[in-house]
């Protein structure tokens, strides 16, 4: 057994909350720069140039790229040879989130009860997804999720007969319905198959895949590039003002499903789609 102390996890989470919010990921930065070259709408170009300049200001001053510093979604892949010492894993994660959001001057955007809506004051609790894997390492991913884009996400249980056309139609309809609201250009994460909650989780995880990396199965890789092209013909454009840059990437994760079902979940990520990861 390899021992990993809770304090180490807390520190890592706290640092990643800050870095994910203040430093735009390289793959997204490159995608925005590429889009800026291709965009032919004058207003769209202006928006993309502004987003690139904004990322520079944020990095220089170590301030958040966007004021919505999100609800902290934390993925943990824990090797089965790992033994966590010195406390509870969940408490260690939440302590890291509270510390990161305080020390990084990040916005506290979490309410304790979804209906009664009192702010918890420290951006906890995080949404934690833990998976046991082989090995003796602990991989931690922090993906603070803004709700301008989260609110435009959707899930539907399709009939198997609806097939690939039904899947494509639902993904495109979700992007079209989102329109200008989720801060385009967006990243589209889709989960196809599994059960209802599995589809939603896959959609979220699909947002973490680096922009430019396509699905390893050529069938799904082809679907991704087809949907990317179709979405960019919707003329939603940067900030919704029109143009050819609506979606930077479409990522689809798939899983076996039941003979009676075809679940599809679409999680929309804004042009920041924050994430940071570290292996402990």
């Amino acid at each position: 057994m390899r021992e990993i102390p809770c304090a180490l996890i807390t520190t890592a989470i706290s640092e990643m909350c800050v870095s994910a919010n203040c430093l735009l990921a390289g793959d997204i930065r490159r995608a925005l720069a590429e889009a800026h070259k291709r965009e032919d709408s004058p207003l769209g170009r202006e928006v993309l140039a502004t987003l690139l300049a904004n990322a520079e200001v944020a990095a220089d001053r170590m301030i958040p790229i966007c004021q919505d510093t999100g609800m902290a979604v934390v993925f943990i892949e824990m090797g089965q040879e790992v033994h966590i010492t010195g406390g509870s894993l969940v408490e260690a994660v939440n302590l890291g989130v509270a510390r990161g959001y305080a020390q990084g001057y990040l916005r506290k955007s979490v309410v304790r009860d979804p209906v009664r809506r009192e702010n918890t004051g420290d951006n906890t609790p995080a949404v934690i997804h833990c998976q046991i894997v082989v090995g003796d390492q602990l991989k931690v991913t922090v993906a603070p999720k803004g709700f301008g884009s989260e609110n435009m996400s959707a899930l539907k249980m399709l009939k198997p007969a609806q097939g690939l056309d039904g899947v494509k139609e639902f993904i495109l309809d979700t992007v079209a319905a989102a329109g200008p609201n989720p801060c385009p250009p967006i990243i589209v994460g889709a989960g196809v198959g599994g059960t209802m909650e599995m589809a939603a989780l896959m959609a979220k995880q699909a947002l973490l895949r680096p922009v430019g990396e396509i699905h390893p199965d050529p069938f799904w890789g082809e679907v991704e590039s087809e949907l990317l092209a179709a979405a960019n013909r919707l003329d939603i454009g940067p900030a919704g003002f029109g143009g050819r840059t609506t979606v930077l990437a479409v990522h689809i994760n798939v899983y076996p499903t039941h003979i009676a079902g075809l679940p599809v979940a679409v999680n929309i990520g804004c042009h920041v789609t924050r994430h940071a990861e570290r292996v402990l």
């Binding site: 987003l51 301030i63 790229i65 966007c66 200008p180 003002f241």
Partner: peptide, 10 residues
């Protein structure tokens, strides 16, 4: 008026 979503640091 629409401000540019996500350009909050600027």
């Amino acid at each position: 008026l629409a401000a540019i979503g996500g350009a909050a640091a600027l």
